[in-house]
Amino acid sequence: MPIKSYLAYPVPGHAETVTQALAAFEGCDVFPALNQDVLILVTDTPDEPAESWLEEQLALVPELQCLALVSGLNPELVQINPTLEHSC
């Protein structure tokens, strides 16, 4: 499964709570910003059901205002999103 990274926006003033809540999930790494209430969340799940489960759980964290997907990297470099193709 791809490794995904997100920008996570806690409800203002709740960065610490959100950091702890997210870090408690298996397969989640959290990196708080040094100066603002923004976090980077990196998820690494073994399969699709685990990924869906994790996404559902993330949605339930009350102090998490918004989660923006930034990247999905597959270690085998399989392209996970469609891209431009143009034929000659």
């Binding site: 997100y6 920008l7 990196f31 910003a33 040094l34 999905g72 990297l73």
Partner: peptide, 27 residues
Amino acid sequence: SRRELFKGMAMAAAAAAQQVFPGVLFA
């Protein structure tokens, strides 16, 4: 591990994306 390496890249991508919402610094 290779997987950890890609986790590093994914994190870097997020940090880079955040640069465009200026003023935020990550370790």
